[in-house]
């Protein structure tokens, strides 16, 4: 520029920078023109993303599959052997099977969530050119989804709906640095705030100065007023490390989420939660596995109305693992 640009280039630079600043000012002042442009873009993008996702999803895990190929193969063989052993034990002990059925029924009853949900497929992930962590799902306002609704996967909380179009919605993942959720420790009922850190780990700050956190503690969503943005009782994660520094007023901890956010295929958006008690599942210790029953209709029929699942939507079920 100094050598060959001249005044014209400088003028052009100033005009374009001022234009950009003008757009930023408009957006920060909440002018709907700029927000509307992003909504239009999402409307255009979502059919393309849906198509590309169907074709492209096997390629998406290419790097991970290569890395884990040998490990997965070995694990598969090990699991097959264990399965054989387990099948044999179960066949011999009919009594054990009966007890297991009873236990499951008790846990089903205790953990009845009765959430009204809409299932949706993940069709895109957030762009690498921004630092926000989002996914795009193939169900939107036509299926009853609106911003600030809880999104769950088979293992627990995933995030909340950030914005919607008719046929798609953007979900802010719980790993996003701007994500915060009120949680409750299942053991002590102490409440705290869980924040995303942009990675697989989360930060928990307890609100009660007298409360204590222990490694392995299970965290559940505390719920919000009117169930927006969070419904109560959704499993969030487990405490993996506790910070006992003397200089902080309340305890803080590091948490790992139950939901694997890198491997989301299908999620469910909670449209409403039951208003009568009990609203939260009682989690079995030490490590809960949540099964979510959902109606698959919105996946296949665009514009279909959501229905309440006839079975509990958030049911902790015991896992049977043989001793090695």
């Amino acid at each position: 520029m100094a050598r060959g640009g001249g005044n014209r280039s400088r003028l052009l630079l100033v005009i374009l920078l001022v234009t950009a600043l003008f757009f930023i000012t408009l957006d920060l002042r909440g002018v709907s023109l700029t927000k509307g442009s992003r909504s239009v873009t999402q409307t255009i993008l979502s059919p393309v993303q849906r198509t590309v996702s169907t074709i492209f999803s096997p390629v998406g895990r290419f790097f991970g599959d290569i890395k884990n190929f040998g490990k997965t193969n070995a694990e598969l063989n090990q699991e097959l052997a264990l399965n054989k052993l387990l099948k044999g034990e179960l066949a011999m002990a009919g009594d054990t099977k009966g007890q297991l059925t009873q236990l499951k029924a008790v846990l089903d009853l205790a953990g009845r969530g009765n959430y009204k949900v809409v299932a949706a497929r993940v069709i895109a992930r957030g762009s690498a050119s921004s630092f926000s962590q989002t996914i795009t799902i193939d169900a939107g306002s036509a299926s009853g989804i609106h911003p600030d609704m809880t999104v769950i996967s088979q293992n627990g909380l995933v995030g909340l709906v950030k914005s919607t179009t008719g046929s798609s919605a953007i979900v802010l993942l719980m790993s996003d640095p701007s994500f915060k959720v009120g949680v409750r420790i299942a053991r002590s009922q102490s409440i705290g705030v869980l924040s995303g850190l942009g990675s697989t780990e989360y930060s928990l700050v307890l609100l009660d100065p007298a409360g204590t956190i222990k490694a392995g503690d299970t965290l559940l969503t505390n719920g919000s007023e009117g169930n927006k943005p969070f419904v109560p009782g959704v499993p969030v994660g487990a405490v993996v490390g506790v910070d006992n520094s003397a200089d902080s007023l309340t305890q803080t901890a590091t948490v790992n989420s139950y939901a694997n956010l890198n491997d989301l295929g299908v999620v469910a958006v909670v449209l409403s939660a039951p208003t009568s008690a009990p609203r939260t599942p009682i989690l079995p210790s030490p490590n809960p596995r949540v099964t979510v029953y959902v109606t698959p209709a919105p996946l296949l029929i665009p514009g279909a109305t959501p229905t309440t699942s006839p079975t509990p939507t958030s049911i902790p079920t015991p896992t049977v693992t043989p001793k090695k």
Binding site: L21, F23, I24, T34, T41, S129, S132, I170
Partner: peptide, 23 residues
């Protein structure tokens, strides 16, 4: 790039940055 619906940044932020990079 500012049209990205997943972005948290205000509209115009990327335009400002990439214009500066262009300069």
């Amino acid at each position: 790039l500012d049209l990205s619906p997943t972005s948290n940044a205000p509209f115009g932020q990327w335009a400002l940055i990439l214009t500066s990079i262009g300069f």
